[in-house]
Amino acid sequence: MLETMGKVEEIIALNDNDKERLIQILLELQKEFRWLSREVLERVGKKLDVPINHIYSLVTFYSHFSLVPKGRHVMSVCVGTACHVRGAERLLDSVASAVKCKPGCTTSDEKFSLDTVNCLGACALGPVMVADGEYMSNPTPDEISRKVESCE
């Protein structure tokens, strides 16, 4: 915990304790810890003199912030329009049943998180998903389960 708070203070200091940089600070913290805990948010609020209701309005407004720990493996399914017309919903269903968790959720053993993203800018590959950084173009249910099984 001490170490965590040290990092929080460091990141805030690197941003000149500037209230205007609140979103930038939270993005850096999200990147550092992969989620934002209540303790971290409370510290940020105290340090920058931003009330807790403002902090929570902000972190629950922007989709990039996660307020729960993310899984060790992240599956992102693109649900952009181009992928949608090429069957993204079907792909999402398949991935959800393979990792046994709903879109936007993390499995209780914190092994998998399943996210949807609005456009990966890889429309030619649609429907496309990214499994731990690896792009998969229109995978079959079989390919998905093989990928899922390969995750530790």
Binding site: N53, H54, S57
Partner: peptide
């Protein structure tokens, strides 16, 4: 927030 400065109530989500 504005009149009491208490900041108890707030919006969450979008």
């Amino acid at each position: 927030s504005e009149r009491k400065g208490a900041n108890v109530l707030g919006f969450v989500g979008r």
